[in-house]
Amino acid sequence: MSYIQVSIPTNDLQLQEVLTALLSDMDYEGFDQDSQQLNAYIPTSLFDEPSLTELLTNFSLSFTKSIIEKQNWNALWEASFEPVVIDGVCVIRAPFHEFNNPSLLDILITPKMSFGTGHHATTQLMATAMKSLPVENAYVFDFGSGTGVLSILASKLGAKQIIAVDNEEWAVENAQENNLLNQVDNVETILGSLEQVSASNFDIILANINRHILLHYMPSLFVKCVVNGQLLLSGLLLEDELIIKESAERVGFVYQETYTQNNWIAMRFSKA
């Protein structure tokens, strides 16, 4: 997805602030500024030039616009990141790293601006927790799959089939590339959200997203889980634990365990 950068020359900092508030209501997603101009950023598909012109005319302001094509902004970091060893479970590495620990599962990831390289505490917590789940022959759902790292791990832990879903087009493309790279053929990655997944008989549900999304979809996750199934959640901070526990229990899940690393947690529930 390409973006448009709109640059509005004004050295009036108060006016820059007013414009930031007004433009944020017109679908502009982000801003940066200096003493001479305000820059605002919007997906090209949402850019409405007549409305912008009308707004700025009232402040006697002009603007210039430039298109910023979609590209991998994370390429610099991705070109030199360190492999991650998750104790007793796996090594997550790029193809340019050597693999020299055959006692662990080997997972190859070229992230291309998607989440899930193993560097974040939540991926490590999920991977560690998955090791103790009955993944073998399980039907697994990976909600918010990013690079596909957890799907690939589930496959290598012996899952029967994995359905993965992500609402970012580049993440779905990337997950499919990573599935190929790891030679796993039992992962199906779908573009969309929970609504695009028709199956509802998952033995294990993995969701490393955030509190807001998990709370919203908790009732649907319960429907998608089989009796005696397991739900593993992360993307959560310590302060989210209570509200997630209450929400999961309200729909019928039974709390089992919380895993903690730094300020991040993963939580495991079961369906009785």
Partner: peptide, 13 residues
């Protein structure tokens, strides 16, 4: 930068 709460993504800015 200024970006929207809960909605940061790897796009500009």
């Amino acid at each position: 930068l200024q970006c929207k709460g809960g909605q940061a993504n790897p796009a500009p800015p």
